[in-house]
Design a protein around this nucleic acid. Structure first.
Lengths: 112, 112
DNA sequence: CGGTATCCTCAGTGATACTG
DNA sequence: CAGTATCACTGAGGATACCG
């Protein structure tokens, strides 16, 4: 293993339960907190906040606060975030075509 | 969200702490249990076993036992496993070029 | 060599309530 | 609206010991 360091650090992002889902939702432009919450089914307010902070810290997205009442906060991918999104696209492609096979493999495996 | 189902199921594989590391190690051909254990720094015997079973169940790799003494068990990617490996290649590329930027972003973020 | 079996810990996550 | 604070829980994963 020579570049496992990088491989692992990326897994820290990619392996996250919610991170890639958020990155995907932002691919067509900025969204507000509540829009993300509605779009990502099942995420708790807490985890959305935590994951957004992590992604902001990693330079994957930016957080923009407009100081109005009621508050208006929007999240947008950075250039790096967009490149990450592109790098994961093949994986999403793969998943769409292969998930059925995986399910089949599992069923076959379990029936033994 | 229309195909988030696939996205999530893939995260079940890809999001795993060890799975992608194993898939990567097997890209150049089959390896034995102990070889994998040595190659993947920090993995416990238990987690190697568990993860290998999961990947076998998902049809990502095959487990071949040669009944000799001492035992000889080797693991090899299936066609699906190889295609998964290829689908994750861009992500590895991305990680190699961007991890330094992520580290920089983190340091910058923390110094505020 | 290539596992299983146990036990144990703690980080990740959800639920709930409160707030500028 | 967009959080923060607190608590409680679960299960992923490590350590250790044993086995065919």
């Amino acid at each position: 293993m020579q570049d496992p360091c990088q491989a692992r650090e990326v897994l820290g992002i990619v392996g996250d339960k919610w991170a890639l889902l958020i990155v995907r939702m932002l691919k067509d432009g900025p969204l507000r907190f509540t829009e993300l919450k509605r779009a990502i089914d099942g995420i708790s307010q807490r985890m959305l906040t935590v994951t957004l902070r992590d992604l902001e810290r990693d330079g994957i997205l930016t957080r923009t606060v407009r100081n109005v009442m009621p508050p208006h906060v929007s999240y947008e991918l950075t250039a790096m975030g967009r490149s990450l999104r592109e790098a994961t696209a093949p994986l999403l492609e793969w998943s769409i075509t292969h998930v059925p096979h995986i399910d089949a493999a599992r069923t076959a495996y379990d029936n033994r």
